[in-house]
């Protein structure tokens, strides 16, 4: 549990290491990535391309696209991805393999 996070976790399971913007985090294996990041105290996942405003997960159901992150160079919705060991996550930069 992360006391600095506005969120708390009901259950504790095995954790794996991932990185977010270079910082190492221990997240529950197989958990929803957006939920796991929120519980770890990470609430800004990207900055908007238009004004640079910070954004975090909003709908948790794959509809709003505010949770976009880059995982291993591919832009994905964090709320539609499960945590696995060694994930290399970053705020999207705009030159990754994105939508066509």
């Amino acid at each position: 549990m992360n006391p600095a996070s506005p969120f708390l976790e009901l259950e504790q399971g095995p954790r794996v290491s991932v990185t977010f913007d270079g910082a190492q985090l221990e997240l529950p294996e197989g958990a929803n990535l957006a939920a796991a990041l929120l519980a770890a105290g990470v609430d800004v996942l990207r900055h908007t391309p238009v004004s640079g405003a910070p954004r975090g997960p909003f709908c948790m159901m794959g509809a709003c696209f505010d949770c976009l992150v880059e995982i291993g160079g591919v832009v994905r919705q964090a709320c539609m991805v499960e945590v696995s060991a060694g994930m290399d996550i970053a705020k999207p930069r705009g030159d990754a393999d994105g939508p066509v």
Binding site: F7, E9, D43, V44, F58
Partner: peptide, 19 residues
Amino acid sequence: PGVMTAGAGQILLKQSGVL
């Protein structure tokens, strides 16, 4: 950040046990 739909709050609970 920190503003979500109430449904999202419920999904955090249902799917992840996060409150």
